[in-house]
Computed example of a mutant assay.
Amino acid sequence: MTRKPSRRRWFGEQQRFALMLIVPAAAILTFFQLIPIIMGTSASFRDWMLYNPKKTWVGLAQYEKVLTDPAFLTVVMPNTFLFMFCSVVISLVIGLALAVAMNRVFRGQKFVQTVLLLPLMVAPVIAAIMMRWIFNDQFGIVNVVLDAVGIGGLPWLVQRWTAFSVIVLTDIWLWAPWFTLLLLAGLQSLPREPFEAAQIDGTTRWRVFRYLTLPMLRPVIIVCIVIRAIDAFRTFDTVWALTGGGPARQTELFSLYAYEEAFVFLDFAKGTAAAMIGAVIILVAGLLLYRVLGHVREGS
């Protein structure tokens, strides 16, 4: 009596075990990210005020409202890109300088590394509140020092550009150690032979840094820029706790604009439309930066 061949199973034991590990994360991702994105996308095509349950379909009208909003075009987007550029570039320069300085043995090196990495342990909201007290125009320590040297204090958080400068300074203080940590790891992973050969030839430190360190560290730098630029574009907590977008919405960034339209002015459709526009901008910027990263890697 011939035995019928058993039906081939689609999943073996290892595949089933892998699925068991993936399913909880996939369920959380679906319920807390995918479904809200779908609901937000649907809401952006409707006339959806939070106090009005009608949710009338209006097509692309909400996107037109956002893209023709003078505040969005002349304040929010320039602020966002300027903040992203200043924060990333200055944090990168400071982080690279600190990483190069830390990439050598000296007395107290571990202690200095620990102190430099302390800002990474501070929540952005706590750092923003701390900076708000430090730059308070009445009793902040900065104005106390300026008054003591005869310069005179400034209303830091009342004027647009001084408040914007405090926001950028806070973000740099938070993220420069992050650049330092990653770049220091990159420096310590570089091969030692080219540097030893340059030292034998008597090459100056600047030429070693320019023609050896930077080219070999370039892929790590680009990865840091890509990750940090995308994260800086969606910054919310620091600005919200520090200035709330003020004075008169003059320091408002993209994420604050979407939040206020949806939950302060109760125009949920316009807020979600702004969020969708931001998602497209981040996607395009990420793809462009990724292509630059690919070309840099090939060149390296």
Rank of each mutant, 00 (worst) to 15 (best):
M1V: 13
K4A: 11
P5F: 14
R9D: 15
F11Y: 06
Q14W: 13
Q15S: 14
R16C: 12
F17S: 14
L19Q: 06
I22T: 13
P24V: 11
A26M: 01
A27W: 04
L29K: 00
T30E: 00
I38G: 00
T41R: 00
S42W: 01
A43P: 03
D47F: 00
P53E: 15
P53H: 11
V58F: 00
L60M: 07
Y63T: 05
K65A: 08
L67G: 11
L67D: 04
D69G: 10
A71Q: 07
A71H: 07
L73H: 02
L73D: 09
L73I: 11
V76R: 05
V76H: 07
T80H: 03
F83I: 10
M84V: 04
F85E: 08
V89F: 01
S91W: 12
S91D: 12
I94G: 07
A99P: 13
A99N: 07
A99Y: 07
A101L: 10
A101I: 13
N103M: 05
R104F: 06
R104E: 12
R107S: 14
Q109Y: 02
F111L: 15
T114C: 07
L117N: 04
L117S: 13
L118T: 11
L118P: 15
P119C: 04
A123T: 13
P124Q: 05
P124N: 01
V125M: 04
A127K: 00
A128L: 09
M131P: 03
R132W: 02
I134W: 02
I141E: 03
I141A: 08
V142G: 04
V144Q: 07
V144W: 01
V145T: 13
L146T: 12
D147E: 08
V149P: 12
G150Y: 14
G150L: 09
G152R: 04
G152M: 05
L154V: 13
V158H: 12
W161V: 15
T162Y: 07
S165A: 11
V166S: 05
V168M: 14
D171G: 09
W175E: 05
L181C: 10
L182N: 09
A185T: 15
G186C: 09
L187H: 13
L190M: 05
L190Q: 03
R192P: 11
R192V: 12
P194N: 09
E196P: 15
A197L: 02
I200P: 11
G202P: 07
T203Q: 05
W206R: 04
Y211R: 04
P215L: 03
M216G: 15
M216H: 09
M216F: 08
C224A: 08
I227V: 03
I227D: 02
A229Q: 08
A232T: 10
A232D: 02
F233K: 10
R234N: 13
T235D: 05
V239W: 12
T243D: 10
G246N: 02
G246W: 06
P247S: 10
P247M: 13
P247E: 14
R249D: 04
R249T: 10
T251W: 04
F254N: 02
F254R: 00
Y257A: 08
Y257I: 14
A258M: 09
A258F: 02
E261H: 12
A262W: 08
A262E: 15
F263D: 09
F265A: 13
L266S: 08
A269G: 08
K270I: 07
A279W: 00
L287S: 04
L287E: 13
L289E: 10
R291T: 14
L293F: 03
